[in-house]
């Protein structure tokens, strides 16, 4: 029996994840929640359309209260991004940005949706010609070449380290690194060349990427640039589990009314399962996912 086995693991600590945690933990399931509150779309929002809150409330406050509520039911919170998921036999295996491994009987995906494009000149034109959005997919095409990763968080930092096994030189371009101390230490002691306090202004190249022009005036010659903003999203974390996405945008995970995906034990709730992107919908779906995941985990544990 693994020592870090949970009944319900939740990725994302926005309103969907928190409500799921509250319901699952109150049903005595062993619950762990991964993610960083400031990453929730709610964090900086002012909420005026949420039932029973008459005055405008700050999203940040709602998130803090929700976490405390979940913690009173013994849910555990870990302020780390998940960088890899796998399903082995009946259990989900999760790797954090610090390299720890956790196992859970069920998994609720509630990490929301985030933009992944840089929106700079040259980006759209050179997609597939040196511009990539997926280190895990495309690292192999850059054996012996020079590459840059752009991003401030776990996806960029872990992506840059993955690329070290393939590329000759790896640059990490970031404004300011926002990763766990452990990941920061690993990155700094690696061969990744970190270029801080700047950002990509333009991707240069005619038929393929030749380099990046930075806001600090510097030009870095590279054969490829990997755009890895924020934490890993649904496509990176869930698609390898075989989850079905909406065919029209590949942004949303398909669920039924029980918030179940097509993979047994895997649930999705909140923005990640489609519009409207509202706190009320997220909370409702989180509740449903939390209750159903908890029941599923109990059945699995007793089988």
């Amino acid at each position: 029996m693994p020592d870090k086995l949970y009944d319900v693991a939740i990725i994302g600590c926005g309103p969907a994840g928190l409500q799921a945690a509250i319901h699952a933990a109150s049903k005595k399931s062993k619950v762990i929640v991964f993610g960083k509150a400031r990453k929730s779309g709610l964090y900086k929002a002012h909420i005026a359309n949420y039932c029973c809150y008459e005055k405008v409330v700050l999203g940040k406050e709602i998130l803090e209260v929700g976490r405390k509520q979940a913690e009173t039911f013994d849910a555990i919170f870990l302020e780390e991004d998940i960088v890899r998921t796998r399903k082995e036999n009946d259990l989900f295996s999760l790797n954090t940005e610090s390299g720890e491994n956790f196992t859970s009987r069920t998994l609720i995906l509630s990490m929301g949706v985030a933009r992944n494009k840089l929106r700079v000149k040259g980006e759209k034109e050179l997609v597939g010609r040196g511009v990539s959005y997926c280190v895990d997919c495309d690292a192999n095409f850059y054996r012996g070449l020079e590459v840059a990763v752009v991003g401030n968080e776990s996806a960029a930092a872990t992506g840059a380290m993955t690329l070290l096994s393939f590329a000759k030189t790896v640059y990490l371009i970031c404004r300011k690194l926002m990763v766990t101390d452990m990941l920061y230490k690993d990155l700094r002691s690696s061969r990744v060349k970190v270029i801080e306090d700047t950002w990509v202004k333009e991707i240069i190249g005619t038929n393929e990427v030749e380099g990046v022009f930075l806001k600090n005036g510097e030009t870095v010659k590279v054969d490829g640039i990997f755009v890895e903003l924020g934490a890993k999203g649904a496509l990176e974390l869930a698609a390898n589990l075989g989850v079905i996405f909406d065919a029209e945008s590949f942004s949303f995970i398909e669920t039924n009314k029980k918030q179940e995906t097509n993979i047994p034990g895997l649930y999705a709730a909140g923005d990640i399962s489609g519009k409207p992107w509202q706190i009320a919908k997220a909370v409702g779906e989180g509740c449903v996912a939390g209750i159903n995941a908890s029941e599923y985990a109990k059945k699995l544990a007793s089988s």
Binding site: D136, C137, E236, L237, A239, N240, I244, F245, A247, F250
Partner: peptide, 17 residues
């Protein structure tokens, strides 16, 4: 495509359809 590529898996059913 490749087996390690999540987005590749996501579009596979679309190709089938």
């Amino acid at each position: 495509w490749a087996p390690w590529c999540g987005p590749c898996k996501a579009i596979a059913p679309v190709m089938d359809e």
